[in-house]
Design a protein around this nucleic acid. Structure first.
Lengths: 123, 123
DNA sequence: TCCAACCCTCACATATGTGTGAGGGTCAAC
DNA sequence: GTTGACCCTCACACATATGTGAGGGTTGGA
């Protein structure tokens, strides 16, 4: 798959796909003519990246956690340093905090909307 | 409370507190000498703002949802336009998506860490 | 053969959240 | 009355994720 197709299938600009590659989030083979060639698996990977970026994680962090997300499960860092593991644990905890924050606020927005509808229904 | 105290109590730079005010996320009274005077409630509000920013919401959106988060619950937009309600619903749904994405990835990271620990325990 | 639709690299531009510092008031304690 | 710790308003700087476009190759079909 070339960049145009991956771009369409992920609703991501070509520019960004090249940027993600530059940031080490995805990689591509090159055809003899220099065109990038992508594996079909990259579609999911790119969507995952976009989701994480949208959730506020910077590429630096995403790069670190992506190797944990592969299926089938493979241990990529059998000899990961304690620092690496600590980083991942910290990131996991930060994600948990984000989740809690988002749930709290999403529920409040939802409750607000419900209350507004309630008010209107009574009139 | 002046800006220095709010800054300390929220671990947020003075610069950012002024920025949030400029963006319409918080407001302050002014002492006769021109110093900003903050209500104690602003501590929670600022922490909420930081959490949402960290979760990837831009100030433009945060500004819209903050009025929904007040306690005790008050309907601020009893005559909110349908557009406003649609915006809030869309934001609520985007937050739900973010939550799902974060949970998925957090769980994958957690599972990975567990697997690494498992591997090490066996040696 | 030529055109359209791809692809490449490179570079400059923009928005957003932040940092930093200059230049200058206020005020309480010494 | 001076000093130090606050506060103010600019304004410029920076990182990150993104857009845009120039200048130029590749390729397949009319």
């Amino acid at each position: 798959m070339r960049i145009g197709e991956l771009s369409e299938r992920t609703a991501t600009s070509r520019r960004l796909l090249r940027y993600y590659e530059e940031q080490g989030l995805i990689n591509s083979a090159r055809s003899p003519n220099g065109y990038r060639a992508y594996d079909a698996k990259l579609v999911d990977r790119v969507l995952q990246i976009r989701g994480l970026l949208d959730a506020g994680l910077p590429t630096r962090i995403i790069r670190r956690i992506l190797p944990c997300l592969d299926k089938p499960r493979v241990i990529h860092f059998p000899d990961a340093t304690p620092e690496m593991l600590a980083t991942l644990e910290a990131e996991r905890d930060r994600m948990t905090e984000r989740i809690a924050c988002l749930i709290r606020n999403r529920d409040a927005v939802a409750a607000y909307l419900d209350a507004v509808r309630e008010t209107r229904a009574q009139r």
